[in-house]
Every structure is written in structure tokens, then in C-alpha cells.
């Protein structure tokens, strides 16, 4: 099993290594500590979101509302903490955001698992609904005076120091959330009964049901879980940026989906792995942040990302056909 996964992800791993080599040879500054710290910092939010989206895709669905859930939960939590004066505990802040995120996820689940409506359509509706509700009822102003605990958390560094050039580099403790989420999702998918059920629904919902999986319950869990993860990502985004901007995050959903798809998850369900997703995220983050080191104007980033998606999708299809050809 492990060997098979390894083989599947080898081309992607090669692409990531290749890009690192190209970037490193093209400009030695790529390997500078502050650039590497930047890359790590920039991969936290997109990485956590991507892991959530991957779980949805493995179950054969697609979620485009997660950015709205992320910013809704983070913005609401920030305001709640400010207004109740409960901003002393960072744990409380994250837990209440995650709770809010899973409630919003439950709304998705209501339509998807119980009414059996198509996932893309439902989450399109809730994307618009959640964002509209936040901007209408919670407000549309930036909040720059964050609660004390959030400010303190953003200053809490895992690694920090001075480069030889004299500039500071820092990796915040919040980065740990990414590997922790990765381990959690990996355990969920590979070591639990529910994980098996998620892939089974993605393969064929009808069969999964007949095999005895409680598909409605599982789907409810999936969308609540993704809601909680998105809320976590939203909180980290707000905390590290030290500003709660309700217009942030919404609009990046297709970029995250692109990273997940590059990572080998299929929109038809049944496929998707943590390693692949992290590699996909690494690819997107490096292209978006480091291509500029090669003197490539930043506006070519999107072209490169687009081409990568097409090449990735094209080779998956071709390899799939070749595999089927071998078997029959």
C-alpha cells in the first residue's frame, strides 16, 4: 500500500524537487533563511484548507464555501471576543472559531447529506449566503485592534533569528497547525473506519450504503470537519496578519482546489492523499512566492499554475488510460 502510494506521488515529488532546483540554481536567495521562512508561513492557511478540501473530494464531493466559512468564523470570533472581553485565552478563541465553523459546515451537510442535493450547487449557495450574512449582520469594517491573546499568539515564534544579511526571519508557532492537521487527517483517512467510509462514498455512494456505511452521518461529519478546519485556517490568517478583514480569503477557493487537484485528488471521488495534497500545496506556494526570484514577472504565475493543472490533469488521464489498457 505504502509502496503504491509512493509510486503514484513520484512524478509530483519530482516536480516539486525540480522546481526547488530551478529556483535555487536561478537565484541563491531562494535558499536564504528568510525566504524559506516566508514559504513556510505562506503555506499554513492554504495547506490547512487544502487538507479539508481533499477530504471532501475523496468523498466524491466538492466544497467552494470553505473560504466563506473561514473568514466568517474568524471575523465573528474576533468580534465576539472583543465585545465580551473574553480575549484572554487563545485556546478559547480557536475552540469557539472551530465550533462556529462546524456549525456552518452542518448547514452544508443539511442540504447535502439529508436532502441529497449536489455538493457544488449547495456550497455555491452557502458561499454567497455566509459571506452575505457576515457582511450584512456582522459588519464590513476592518478590525485592527485584535484581542490581546491573538496578538500575543502572533508574536509567539517557533524559530527566529537574524540572517547574515541582517534581516530577521521568523516562523510562528502557528505553523505547527499544518503538520498537526496533516497527521490528524492522515490518521482519519488511513487508520479509522470513518476514513474507509469516506473513500467508499467517493467510490460509489450507493455501494457504500449497501456495504453498511451510514453515509448520511459520514457526510455530516465530513462537512462539519471541513468547516472546523477552515475556521482554524481563517483564525490563523487573521491572527498572523493582525487584521480581521471580512473581504479576505473569499476568492481564493479555486486556487486551493487547484492545489488539491495537482496533489492527485480526483473530482470524481475515491482518490486523494495527505502527502499528495501537501506536495500540491508546496508547488502552488513556491510558484506564487518564488517565481519572482528568477526574474519572472509576477503576472506569469497564473499562467504557470494553469499550465501545471492542465499538464497534471492530462497526464493523469493518459496514465489512467494506459493502466486500463494494460489490464484488459
Amino acid at each position: 500500500m505504502a509502496l503504491l502510494n509512493w509510486r503514484k506521488e513520484l512524478p509530483l515529488f519530482g516536480a516539486v524537487l525540480g522546481l526547488i532546483l530551478i529556483l535555487g540554481v536561478g537565484n541563491a536567495a531562494f535558499f536564504s533563511l528568510d525566504n524559506l521562512a516566508d514559504l513556510l508561513r505562506n503555506s499554513i492557511v492554504i495547506g490547512i484548507m487544502a487538507l479539508g478540501v481533499m477530504v471532501v473530494m475523496a468523498s466524491g464531493g466538492i466544497d467552494v464555501s470553505f473560504t466563506a466559512i473561514a473568514i466568517f468564523s474568524a471575523y465573528a470570533t474576533t468580534r465576539l471576543l472583543l465585545e465580551t472581553g473574553g480575549g484572554e485565552s487563545i485556546v478559547l478563541a480557536f475552540v469557539s472559531a472551530a465550533f462556529l465553523g462546524s456549525i456552518l459546515g452542518l448547514i452544508n451537510a443539511l442540504f447535502i447529506a439529508w436532502l441529497r442535493l449536489p455538493t457544488l450547487i449547495v456550497t455555491l449557495g452557502t458561499l454567497s449566503l455566509f459571506r452575505g450574512a457576515m457582511l450584512t449582520f456582522l459588519g464590513s469594517e476592518y478590525i485592527t485592534a485584535l484581542p490581546n491573546s491573538m496578538v500575543a499568539f502572533s508574536r509567539w515564534d517557533l524559530v527566529t533569528g537574524l540572517t547574515s544579511g541582517g534581516s530577521t526571519y521568523r516562523v510562528p508557532v502557528a505553523f505547527l497547525a499544518l503538520p498537526l492537521t496533516a497527521v490528524l487527517v492522515s490518521l482519519l483517512l488511513n487508520r479509522t473506519y470513518w476514513g474507509r467510509g469516506i473513500y467508499a462514498i467517493g467510490g460509489d455512494r450507493e455501494s457504500a450504503e449497501r456495504a453498511g456505511f451510514a453515509t448520511a452521518g459520514l457526510q455530516t461529519f465530513i462537512y462539519c470537519f471541513v468547516g472546523a478546519l477552515s475556521a482554524l485556517a481563517g483564525m490563523i490568517h487573521v491572527t498572523l496578519g493582525r487584521i480581521a478583514n471580512p473581504f479576505d480569503l473569499v476568492g481564493m477557493e479555486l486556487n486551493v482546489i487547484a492545489a488539491v487537484v495537482l496533489g492527485g485528488a480526483r473530482l470524481t471521488g475515491g482518490y486523494g492523499s495527505v502527502t499528495g495534497t501537501l506536495l500540491g500545496v508546496a508547488l502552488i506556494v513556491m510558484i506564487n512566492n518564488s517565481l519572482i526570484l528568477l526574474g519572472v514577472p509576477s503576472f506569469w504565475q497564473r499562467v504557470v499554475v494553469g499550465l501545471l493543472i492542465l499538464i497534471g490533469a492530462g497526464t493523469t488521464v493518459v496514465r489512467g488510460r494506459a493502466l486500463r489498457g494494460v489490464r484488459t
Binding site: L254, A258, V261, F299, R302, V305, G306, I309, A313, V317
Partner: peptide
């Protein structure tokens, strides 16, 4: 190439929009 429409157009969405930024500077 038999790429699923949602993926093919997700790719070209980025591609065309990148080209737009490139030609408009």
C-alpha cells in the same frame, strides 16, 4: 485529451487570466 471539463476549464481559467495580466501589464 479527455480532461474532465471542470479541470480543463479550471486550468484555462488560470491560464487566460494570467495571459490577460501579462498582455495588460
Amino acid at each position: 485529451l479527455r480532461i474532465p471539463p471542470i479541470l480543463a476549464t479550471l486550468g484555462t481559467m488560470q491560464l487566460f487570466s494570467g495571459l490577460t495580466i501579462a498582455v495588460t501589464g
